[in-house]
Simulated assay, not measured.
Amino acid sequence: MKKIIPIIALMLCISCNTEKARQKVDEFRLAQHKTEINTVLDAWHKAAADAKFDDYFSKMTDDAIFIGTDASENWKNAAFKNFSKPYFDKGKAWSFTALERNVFLSEYGDIAWFDELLNTQMELCRGSGVVKKVGDTWKIQHYVLSIAIPNDNVKEVVALKKQYDSIIKSKL
């Protein structure tokens, strides 16, 4: 019993210190975080449009995931860099401009998720993702890009991709 009491006391101290270190963020700070996140996302899209490879990937975490519009595109950061490099080397990767964006933050202000409607060379697309605070900087940890298809056109799109999808499904 004498050995258990110091261990319990230590656990309580650690627990209290962890809670103090992870305090909830006030409304002003949450608004500031949203502005910072919007700035990072806009700069990330601009870096692609300007073919600035290092700037683009500096906005992502080392373990980031990028999920593209093709069913085969579920890229870990290193593989996504290899895939993307030839596009950046040609002088223009892709051009996405946010038409609208919603950003939501955790109560502690260290993780956020977002969705955005994008104007792209593929017409309207949707992007969504997760950003996290790394030191003093927001970085993209997970991003999903999808092509926006009007509900009235879904049947035609399904017919166009049916053969390709069956190949992908057979591999899975």
Rank of each mutant, 00 (worst) to 15 (best):
L10N: 04
M11I: 11
L12C: 13
C13L: 15
S15K: 01
S15M: 07
C16E: 01
C16V: 09
N17F: 14
A21H: 11
Q23D: 06
K24A: 15
E27F: 03
R29E: 12
L30E: 09
L30F: 04
A31W: 02
A31N: 11
A31L: 09
T35G: 08
T35H: 08
E36N: 11
E36R: 10
V40I: 15
L41F: 10
D42K: 14
A43E: 13
A43G: 09
D50Y: 04
A51S: 14
A51D: 00
A51I: 11
D55M: 04
K59H: 14
D63S: 14
D63M: 08
A64T: 04
I65H: 06
I65D: 00
I67K: 08
T69V: 13
A71V: 08
E73P: 03
N74D: 12
N77F: 03
N77H: 14
A78F: 01
F80A: 12
N82S: 15
F83R: 13
F83M: 14
K85E: 08
K85Q: 13
K85D: 03
K90T: 14
K90Y: 05
G91N: 09
A93R: 05
W94L: 07
S95M: 08
S95P: 00
T97N: 12
A98D: 07
R101T: 12
F104C: 06
L105P: 07
D110C: 06
D110T: 12
A112M: 09
D115L: 01
R126C: 02
S128Q: 10
G135A: 02
K139Q: 15
I140M: 09
Y143W: 14
S146A: 14
A148L: 14
V154I: 15
K161Q: 11
I168K: 09
I168F: 14
K169F: 05
L172V: 10
